[in-house]
């Protein structure tokens, strides 16, 4: 299927990149293998401007109001939110565990930082994910090159600033290669 190219409308503020929204919900009956992941992940839409972002975002359920095992992903257009994607295969992510009740606010702030190009790491950012789980929620930001320490440190420091994280917040970095090996995201 050939999709229509998304571009900013008249009078809108263009984004540095187009971004695609994805939604994933685990169906309990299926095993958590790659195939069922690809089958269960759904594209919601793509935005090219600040105004298009708000239009789409405002229609979505806030992550803190979701129930069950589900994820929202916002990735640069053309990058699938999968470890195996060309842009992700040498990459990794910062993981921030959040106690229940914080996901919606932190999710919005991490999105605004990404869309506004606050990370200053060139082309390195791939996307952001909020994962709703039973006891806690998890925010992650994916970048292209896991072994580029200058980049990963800068992302960590920017996250601390833009999210205004409590000082005791634990941040972990995990390479997608390790996620593939232990078949686990976190």
């Amino acid at each position: 299927v050939r999709r229509k190219a998304i571009s900013p409308g008249a009078g809108e503020h263009p984004l540095q990149y187009n971004y695609t929204f994805w939604y994933f919900r685990r169906t309990p009956s299926r095993p958590a293998n790659t195939q069922s992941y690809e089958q269960n992940i759904r594209q919601i839409g793509t935005v090219a401007s600040v105004e298009q972002f708000w239009k789409l975002y405002s229609h979505l359920v806030r992550p803190g109001d979701l129930i069950g095992h589900s994820d929202f992903h916002i990735f640069k257009e053309g990058i699938k939110p999968m470890w195996e994607d060309e842009a992700n295969k040498n990459g990794g992510k910062w993981i921030i565990r959040l106690r229940k009740g914080l996901a919606s606010r932190f999710w919005e702030n991490i999105i605004l930082a990404m869309l506004g190009e606050q990370f200053m790491v060139g082309e390195e950012i791939c996307g952001v994910v909020v994962s709703i789980r039973f006891q806690e929620d998890i925010l992650s930001i994916w970048n292209k090159t896991a072994n580029d320490q200058v980049t990963t440190s800068r992302i960590r420091d920017t996250l601390r600033r833009v999210l205004n994280l409590p000082p005791n917040t634990i941040m972990e970095y995990k390479t997608h290669n390790d996620s593939l090996k232990d078949n686990s995201s976190f």
Binding site: H13, W54, S58
Partner: peptide, 21 residues
């Protein structure tokens, strides 16, 4: 090239634009 950078405050202001509805 030039990067299109927006701060949080500006992005939040755009939310109330008629174009964002």
């Amino acid at each position: 090239g030039t990067r299109i950078i927006y701060d949080r405050k500006f992005l939040l202001e755009c939310r109330s634009s008629p174009l964002a509805r």
